Measured scan of single mutants.
Amino acid sequence: VTVHVDGVEYDFDNPEEALKFAKKVAEDKNGTYEVHGNQIRVT
């Protein structure tokens, strides 16, 4: 699973970890996250 944040890609073997990371980053920057299959984009 790849999490995209501001043009940087973070790869996770564990989808739950990826989702947790995306949620935290989105909260920290008052943004949102979208899941597209095995890609998660934080905006």
Results as ranks from 00 to 15, higher is better:
residue 13 D to H: 09
residue 14 N to L: 08
residue 41 R to F: 15
residue 37 G to K: 05
residue 33 Y to R: 01
residue 9 E to W: 11
residue 27 E to R: 13
residue 28 D to T: 10
residue 9 E to Y: 11
residue 15 P to E: 14
residue 20 K to C: 08
residue 32 T to D: 06
residue 30 N to H: 12
residue 37 G to C: 08
residue 11 D to Y: 15
residue 17 E to P: 03
residue 26 A to Y: 03
residue 1 V to C: 09
residue 31 G to M: 12
residue 17 E to S: 08
residue 32 T to V: 10
residue 38 N to S: 09
residue 21 F to R: 00
residue 14 N to Y: 07
residue 31 G to P: 02
residue 33 Y to V: 13
residue 25 V to Q: 12
residue 43 T to H: 15
residue 24 K to Y: 08
residue 27 E to F: 13
residue 34 E to Q: 10
residue 41 R to H: 15
residue 2 T to L: 06
residue 6 D to I: 03
residue 2 T to K: 10
residue 15 P to K: 14
residue 9 E to A: 13
residue 1 V to H: 09
residue 10 Y to F: 11
residue 15 P to D: 08
residue 31 G to I: 04
residue 32 T to F: 12
residue 33 Y to E: 01
residue 31 G to S: 06
residue 37 G to R: 04
residue 29 K to I: 15
residue 18 A to M: 00
residue 12 F to S: 00
residue 8 V to P: 01
residue 31 G to Q: 05
residue 26 A to G: 03
residue 29 K to H: 12
residue 27 E to H: 14
residue 9 E to T: 14
residue 37 G to Y: 05
residue 42 V to E: 02
residue 42 V to Y: 02
residue 39 Q to S: 12
residue 11 D to N: 14
residue 15 P to Y: 15
residue 9 E to R: 13
residue 6 D to Y: 07
residue 34 E to R: 07
residue 30 N to M: 09
residue 23 K to L: 07
residue 20 K to I: 13
residue 38 N to L: 06
residue 10 Y to N: 03
residue 23 K to C: 06
residue 28 D to Y: 11
residue 1 V to Q: 04
residue 19 L to A: 04
residue 8 V to H: 11
residue 33 Y to C: 07
residue 36 H to Q: 12
residue 27 E to P: 02
residue 13 D to P: 12
residue 11 D to F: 15
residue 28 D to F: 11
residue 20 K to L: 13
residue 39 Q to T: 14
residue 32 T to P: 02
residue 38 N to F: 06
residue 10 Y to V: 05
residue 27 E to I: 12
residue 34 E to W: 10
residue 10 Y to M: 04
residue 18 A to T: 00
residue 22 A to E: 01
residue 26 A to S: 08
residue 2 T to P: 01
residue 11 D to S: 14
residue 19 L to V: 08
residue 25 V to G: 02
residue 43 T to E: 12
residue 11 D to H: 15
residue 25 V to A: 12
residue 28 D to K: 10
residue 11 D to A: 14
residue 3 V to I: 03
residue 42 V to K: 00
residue 34 E to L: 08
residue 12 F to A: 00
residue 21 F to K: 01
residue 16 E to C: 11
residue 12 F to Q: 00
residue 20 K to V: 12
residue 19 L to E: 07
residue 23 K to D: 05
residue 6 D to Q: 06
residue 10 Y to H: 07
residue 27 E to K: 14
residue 25 V to D: 02
residue 24 K to C: 12
residue 26 A to N: 02
residue 30 N to C: 09
residue 34 E to P: 01
residue 15 P to W: 15
residue 41 R to Y: 15
residue 5 V to Y: 09
residue 20 K to D: 13
residue 35 V to K: 05
residue 37 G to H: 05
residue 7 G to T: 04
residue 21 F to E: 02
residue 39 Q to N: 11
residue 12 F to M: 02
residue 26 A to P: 00
residue 8 V to R: 12
residue 8 V to Q: 12
residue 13 D to Q: 11
residue 17 E to H: 06
residue 19 L to Y: 08
residue 18 A to E: 00
residue 26 A to Q: 03
residue 11 D to M: 15
residue 12 F to I: 02
residue 11 D to P: 14
residue 27 E to S: 13
residue 23 K to F: 05
residue 11 D to K: 15
residue 39 Q to R: 07
residue 38 N to E: 05
residue 14 N to E: 09
residue 43 T to K: 11
residue 31 G to E: 03
residue 37 G to W: 04
residue 22 A to H: 01
residue 36 H to K: 12
residue 39 Q to I: 15
residue 10 Y to E: 02
residue 43 T to N: 14
residue 19 L to F: 09
residue 14 N to M: 06
residue 40 I to Q: 00
residue 13 D to T: 11
residue 21 F to Y: 07
residue 6 D to W: 06
residue 3 V to C: 03
residue 22 A to L: 02
residue 14 N to G: 09
residue 30 N to T: 05
residue 27 E to C: 14
residue 2 T to G: 03
residue 29 K to V: 14
residue 13 D to R: 09
residue 9 E to C: 12
residue 8 V to C: 09
residue 27 E to G: 10
residue 21 F to H: 03
residue 43 T to Y: 15
residue 25 V to P: 00
residue 10 Y to W: 09
residue 13 D to W: 09
residue 14 N to F: 07
residue 14 N to T: 13
residue 12 F to H: 02
residue 2 T to E: 03
residue 29 K to T: 15
residue 4 H to I: 15
residue 38 N to A: 06
residue 31 G to L: 07
residue 25 V to S: 08
residue 29 K to D: 05
residue 40 I to N: 01
residue 4 H to Y: 14
residue 15 P to Q: 13
residue 41 R to P: 03
residue 16 E to F: 09
residue 40 I to G: 00
residue 1 V to E: 02
residue 40 I to S: 00
residue 28 D to P: 03
residue 16 E to K: 07
residue 41 R to L: 15
residue 32 T to E: 07
residue 25 V to N: 06
residue 9 E to V: 15
residue 21 F to D: 01
residue 18 A to D: 00
residue 12 F to G: 00
residue 38 N to T: 09
residue 25 V to H: 08
residue 38 N to P: 03
residue 9 E to S: 14
residue 3 V to G: 00
residue 7 G to Y: 04
residue 3 V to T: 01
residue 27 E to D: 11
residue 19 L to S: 03
residue 42 V to T: 02
residue 8 V to I: 13
residue 2 T to F: 06
residue 35 V to L: 07
residue 9 E to P: 09
residue 9 E to D: 10
residue 15 P to V: 15
residue 34 E to I: 12
residue 16 E to H: 10
residue 18 A to R: 00
residue 11 D to R: 15
residue 12 F to V: 01
residue 30 N to P: 03
residue 22 A to M: 02
residue 9 E to N: 10
residue 1 V to I: 13
residue 29 K to E: 07
residue 27 E to L: 13
residue 15 P to F: 15
residue 17 E to D: 13
residue 7 G to L: 05
residue 36 H to C: 14
residue 16 E to M: 10
residue 33 Y to M: 08
residue 6 D to L: 06
residue 41 R to G: 04
residue 30 N to Q: 10
residue 7 G to R: 04
residue 43 T to V: 15
residue 31 G to N: 03
residue 14 N to Q: 07
residue 27 E to Q: 14
residue 40 I to D: 02
residue 31 G to D: 03
residue 12 F to W: 03
residue 5 V to S: 04
residue 21 F to S: 01
residue 16 E to P: 04
residue 39 Q to E: 14
residue 29 K to M: 15
residue 35 V to W: 14
residue 8 V to S: 07
residue 39 Q to K: 07
residue 2 T to D: 01
residue 33 Y to Q: 02
residue 34 E to V: 13
residue 4 H to G: 03
residue 4 H to V: 13
residue 34 E to M: 09
residue 13 D to E: 12
residue 19 L to C: 11
residue 21 F to V: 02
residue 4 H to C: 13
residue 3 V to Y: 01
residue 40 I to F: 04
residue 5 V to A: 05
residue 26 A to L: 06
residue 20 K to Y: 10
residue 8 V to D: 08
residue 2 T to M: 06
residue 4 H to P: 01
residue 7 G to K: 04
residue 10 Y to I: 07
residue 2 T to C: 07
residue 2 T to S: 08
residue 20 K to H: 11
residue 18 A to I: 00
residue 30 N to W: 06
residue 7 G to N: 08
residue 18 A to H: 00
residue 42 V to I: 12
residue 21 F to N: 01
residue 39 Q to H: 14
residue 12 F to N: 00
residue 16 E to Q: 11
residue 24 K to N: 08
residue 25 V to W: 10
residue 23 K to Y: 06
residue 27 E to N: 12
residue 5 V to H: 05
residue 37 G to A: 06
residue 17 E to M: 07
residue 31 G to V: 06
residue 19 L to G: 03
residue 35 V to I: 14
residue 9 E to I: 15
residue 5 V to L: 08
residue 9 E to M: 14
residue 20 K to A: 15
residue 22 A to V: 04
residue 16 E to I: 11
residue 16 E to S: 09
residue 41 R to T: 15
residue 6 D to M: 10
residue 23 K to E: 09
residue 6 D to P: 02
residue 7 G to M: 05
residue 26 A to T: 06
residue 42 V to W: 02
residue 31 G to Y: 11
residue 17 E to Q: 08
residue 24 K to D: 08
residue 19 L to P: 00
residue 26 A to E: 02
residue 33 Y to P: 02
residue 33 Y to S: 02
residue 1 V to F: 15
residue 17 E to W: 04
residue 26 A to W: 03
residue 13 D to G: 08
residue 41 R to D: 08
residue 30 N to A: 08
residue 5 V to I: 10
residue 21 F to Q: 01
residue 26 A to M: 04
residue 10 Y to L: 04
residue 13 D to A: 12
residue 32 T to Q: 10
residue 35 V to D: 03
residue 26 A to I: 06
residue 6 D to C: 07
residue 37 G to E: 08
residue 9 E to F: 11
residue 39 Q to L: 11
residue 2 T to W: 06
residue 3 V to Q: 00
residue 11 D to E: 14
residue 28 D to M: 14
residue 38 N to D: 09
residue 1 V to W: 15
residue 8 V to T: 10
residue 36 H to F: 14
residue 16 E to D: 12
residue 39 Q to P: 02
residue 6 D to H: 07
residue 6 D to N: 13
residue 29 K to F: 15
residue 28 D to S: 13
residue 28 D to L: 14
residue 15 P to I: 15
residue 20 K to P: 03
residue 28 D to H: 10
residue 6 D to G: 08
residue 17 E to A: 10
residue 40 I to M: 03
residue 20 K to R: 13
residue 5 V to P: 02
residue 14 N to D: 15
residue 6 D to F: 08
residue 4 H to Q: 08
residue 32 T to W: 14
residue 42 V to C: 04
residue 30 N to D: 08
residue 22 A to S: 03
residue 21 F to M: 03
residue 24 K to E: 11
residue 28 D to R: 09
residue 24 K to F: 08
residue 12 F to R: 00
residue 14 N to V: 07
residue 22 A to W: 02
residue 8 V to M: 12
residue 21 F to C: 04
residue 12 F to K: 00
residue 18 A to S: 02
residue 15 P to G: 09
residue 42 V to R: 00
residue 32 T to H: 12
residue 3 V to P: 01
residue 29 K to P: 03
residue 19 L to N: 03
residue 6 D to V: 03
residue 4 H to R: 07
residue 1 V to L: 07
residue 22 A to C: 05
residue 8 V to A: 09
residue 27 E to M: 14
residue 40 I to V: 05
residue 24 K to R: 11
residue 41 R to S: 13
residue 5 V to E: 03
residue 17 E to Y: 05
residue 19 L to H: 06
residue 4 H to F: 14
residue 11 D to V: 15
residue 27 E to A: 14
residue 33 Y to D: 01
residue 30 N to K: 11
residue 1 V to N: 05
residue 18 A to W: 01
